[in-house]
Structure formats: C-alpha cells, structure tokens
C-alpha cells in the first residue's frame, strides 16, 4: 500500500507561525469584523444567558420576575414526562443512526459513480431540502394516512395489512425518522459528494491497476478517506435529532401516547401554551448541557483532523 499524506483532503495546511507583526497586520481585520462579532455574541450568547437566568426564576412577562432558586429544576426532574422525552430522544437517535446514517453515504456514492446525469440526480436528491418543511409534512401525513393513505394503499395492493403509521406508539418514531432522513439527506449528500470529489482520481487508477473490484475500492479507499467527514456528520446528526421538534409538532402533537414527545416540543408547550417560561428555561438548560457535550466533541473533531496514513 502506498503511504500518502493528502494535503488537499482532510489535513489542514500548517498554520503560519504568528510573527511579532501579527497583531499589527491583523488589527485592522479584527477591527472590521468586531461589530459583526459583537452582534453575533449578543444574538447568540445573550439568549443563552437569559435562558439560564430564567431557569432560576418564576418568569412574568409583564412584571418583574421572582428568583426561585432550583425550584424549576426540581419540578422538571419531578415530571415523568422529562424522562419520557429524553428516552424518546435516545430511541430517535438509535433509529435515526441505524436507519438514516448510511443513506446519504450510499446516495452520494451512487451519484458520484454515475457517468451521466450526475448533476440531475444530485438536484433530485437535494430537492426535499428545498420544500418548506410544513408543506412536506402535510404531504407525509397523506402518505401515512390510515384510511386511503398512499403507503397503506400500496400495502393493500400487495396483500399486506394497513398500518397505523403515526397512530401506533411502536411505529410513530420510525415513521418520523423516515421523514427526517428524507428531509435531511440532501444536504448530507452534498457534503459527502464534495468529499468524494476531493479524492484524487490517481488513487482509484492505481487501485484499478492493482485489480480492486468496485466494492473493494469503496471499502478500502473511499470510506476511509471520507471517514472523518462521516464522524462529523454523525455528531451533527446527533445534535439535530436531539432537537427534533417540527415533525412531532405538526404530525403527532407528541402522541400517540407521548411516544414522540421530545424535550424541545415539551419546552415549547411549557413556555408558549402554559406561559411557564421558568420551567421551560430549565428544560432548555438540560438540552443545552446535553447538546453542548456533543458540540464540544464536534468542534474538537473539526479542528483536530489528523492526516490519514495509507
């Protein structure tokens, strides 16, 4: 096997050493981006800090709020729905990784292998991402409809019994994961495609000369070369699925039998249906803590990609 360092792919170019003149040279640049940085900080960290403060208060929207210590957290941990929601997220994650993680990889490999119409299929794959999510979900509601739905009609036509896709607590989660995968695959495919197209063709040519079959090429060359991208996509998937809201909000209202209640859905209801912003903020903080852990790993992985040796 050839050993090669591929500077164009996953290895960042070495950073130039900071000279004494660094700040002198860069000061103007930093000054120029300072307003944007400030706005970004206010818009991003402002709400986060406010949420943390709210989580220790009984929030009143029109009058001064009262400090209540850990009361909101006691209520949150005392609510059985807290555990249900996080358990649901764990199951969503497992299903989405099992069912959905490899889908964009396969799609990207297929599109990449196409000699003709590659761009066309790339567009087709990305199309779901362009449809407004509420519209897409209404279409999926018709697909999953128990009576006369597209999916059940198909099942009936091949002699299989109709299913209650969104009304059966055992089926609702996988049914929603299918939609999430359909909606999200397009973006991931583009990212994988860009990674695939960065792989120098010489490697494949060498492999072909060595007598590699297409599967061997994918297994020994392609997948290792995009593996760091896959790690990052996996983390992104965890972060996105951890915040799932729109699908259960529009399709199932958290049901059936609370099987699709998620932390974001419950914090939305707590805040906006029950005007209990303190408790909702405690839920937000729980989400912040969990997702921050994954985000830290994500940032470390993105920054610390190591060169790959072959």
């Amino acid at each position: 096997m050839t050993t090669l360092a591929n500077p164009s792919l996953d290895t960042p170019s070495p950073r130039p050493p900071r000279s004494r003149n660094f700040w002198k040279k860069q000061a103007l640049s930093y000054l120029v981006i300072l307003p944007t940085l400030l706005i970004f900080a206010v818009m991003t960290f402002g709400p986060i800090l406010t949420t943390i403060v709210y989580s220790f208060q009984e929030v009143n929207l029109t009058r001064a709020s009262e400090w209540v210590g850990l009361h909101n957290y006691v209520r949150m941990f005392g609510n059985p729905l807290f555990y249900t929601a996080w358990k649901n997220i764990a199951v969503f994650l497992i299903i989405s990784i099992l069912m959905g993680f490899m889908v964009p990889v396969f799609l990207a490999l297929m599109v990449n292998e196409l000699r003709h119409f590659g761009r066309f299929f790339q567009t087709i794959v990305y199309l779901p991402s362009l449809i407004p999510i509420a519209v897409a979900l209404l279409v999926w509601r018709q697909i999953y409809a128990p009576d006369g739905g597209v999916l059940n009609s198909l099942l009936n036509s091949i002699g299989l019994p109709a299913q209650l896709w969104l009304q059966n607590p055992d089926l609702a989660k996988p049914a929603i994961v299918v939609i999430m995968t359909w909606l999200g695959a397009g973006g991931s495919v583009l990212i994988y495609l860009s990674a695939l197209q960065e792989i120098p063709t010489e490697i494949y040519e060498a492999a072909e000369l060595d007598g590699f079959s297409p599967w061997q090429r994918i297994w020994y060359i392609t997948l290792p070369l995009i593996s760091s991208r896959m790690q990052i996509m996996l983390l992104l998937q965890i972060i996105v699925v951890g915040q799932v809201f729109t699908e259960p909000f529009i399709l199932t209202t958290g049901g059936p039998a609370n099987s699709t209640v998620t932390p974001v859905l419950e914090l939305y209801r707590t805040a906006f249906e029950r005007s209990d912003f303190g408790l909702a903020s405690a839920w937000s903080v729980s989400l912040l803590v969990v997702l921050s852990l994954f985000s830290i790993v994500y940032v470390r992985l993105s920054l610390g990609r190591e060169s790959i040796q072959y």
């Binding site: 005392g78 609510n79 607590p169 049901g255 059936p256 609370n258 029950r274």
Partner: peptide, 27 residues
Amino acid sequence: VSTVVNDQSADPAAILLQTADTFQTNV
C-alpha cells in the same frame, strides 16, 4: 386522550392518576 385511543395496553386509571399528580405539582 392520545394515550388511551392509541395504546391498547394503556390503563386509563393509572394514566389519569399520574397525569393528575403531575398537574398538581407542575401547575
């Protein structure tokens, strides 16, 4: 209601009791 009409194994009495408890504490 969602639980009772979607989950055949649901026990209306147990669910109602748990909901009332949570409603008491949380609201």
